[in-house]
Design a binder for these strands. Structure first.
Lengths: 215, 215
DNA sequence: TATTGTGAACCGGTTCACAGCG
DNA sequence: CGCTGTGAACCGGTTCACAATA
């Protein structure tokens, strides 16, 4: 079993893209593909595709390319998507509610198993087939349900305290929607998904390109 | 006026973080700060902070640090956040609806000015103070309202066609929530914000760390 | 003295050329 | 012959040491 040391974070992001393409190909009944085709649809070079895959093994046939079903299965395994993941939502504001109702979690066995909010007034409210629970039951529920991951959807100023509670409860990965840089121990991974930050990066790039055009 | 050539994308992302910290400091009444303090709160090195800023000019005082208000103003200018941005939502499913109701757009003058959906049945429905409109009026409304940016919140298979329509209507930046790599002309910038992709990256990293711990 | 600003060294990820192999 | 797999070159971003200066 490869220990996969030193894989660039950018490679992991591209693997997710390749997997999406392979899934679409399989649905369309496509049997085989090539680094060239994956590259074209991902907007990267074929070198890059092959190098990304080479971090984890050899999955193709020289002269022939890749079998869609095989490569897809391997990428699922590499990305950890062959096992179920129990996910909780922390913070049931608008965004938390929207995520609770999001229909696509069951894709690859992500299971929404709990929803928490610090506000006692929200306890008991329905949320995507579940009921909102108070923070005080998080530790017990995390153990009972074996919660693996959490969506952090609390306001920025509350984010660090909420993250601390999740870490104390044994969560190992946080998808962070809050506008904050979280402090977590090394065994916990944080993946930022910051809407307003994305909007501000967009603002910069649009202005920069307009200036390029002018020049 | 600096043409700001060759600024790394990662730098732009960090500038957004610095700006957020400076805004919080200003609200707390803090007058001055240092590259060291910004670095600590952003989880980067002080070298990195100074290098990031150096792409755009010299904003500090040697021996004393940075004036919070001044640096904040400069970062807003650099990021293009001193002018208003007119934003439209394309795709009024659950996510589009949630975004329309999102309360924080007015921060830095992002103005939600229109909401579109390809489904005629959705036309006229309320959406965050607006009413959903059909795709056929997009070109006219884009000109009339001078729409700058768009949130793309349609299903993956519909994303490219929707992006094409936005580009044809003159939009210059797309915040892409759809699981798809978009094909756009060079004067249009796409910033991906892919929820499920973030979740899959998280899956990989959590598995990888568990293996590290085992080893 | 304290902290910024920056040219140079360093390093890691991307690119490449080509070897390996169906 | 075609396409994958990979060691080596390259390049861009990060790190660093130190010069500049309030």
């Amino acid at each position: 079993m490869p220990a996969t040391p030193g894989v660039p974070a950018a490679t992991v992001g591209r693997l997710v893209t390749y997997l999406r393409l392979l899934t679409a190909m399989e649905e369309r009944g496509v049997r085989t593909t090539s680094s060239d085709e994956l590259a074209g649809r991902s907007h990267v070079s074929a070198f890059q595709v092959r190098k990304d895959l080479a971090y984890f093994g050899r999955f193709g046939t020289r002269g022939a390319g890749y079998t869609v079903a095989t490569l897809r299965r391997e990428l699922r395994r590499i990305l950890g998507l062959t096992r179920p993941w129990n996910v909780a939502i922390m913070g049931m504001g608008r965004l938390g509610q929207a995520l609770a109702d999001y229909p696509n979690f069951d894709e690859y066995d992500f299971r929404l198993v709990a929803a928490f909010d610090a506000d006692p007034a929200k306890a008991g409210l329905p949320a995507g087939g579940l009921f909102v629970e108070g923070l005080e039951v998080l530790p017990a529920r995390a153990t009972e349900l074996t919660i693996d991951l959490a969506f952090l959807t609390v306001p920025g100023p509350a984010a660090q305290a909420a993250a601390d509670a999740l870490v104390a409860a044994g969560i190992r990965g946080i998808l962070n929607f809050a506008p904050a840089v979280l402090e977590v121990p090394p065994h916990v991974h944080v993946e930022p998904v910051d809407l307003m930050a994305g909007l501000k990066r967009l603002s910069y790039h649009v202005v920069a390109r307009a200036e390029d055009d002018a020049a």
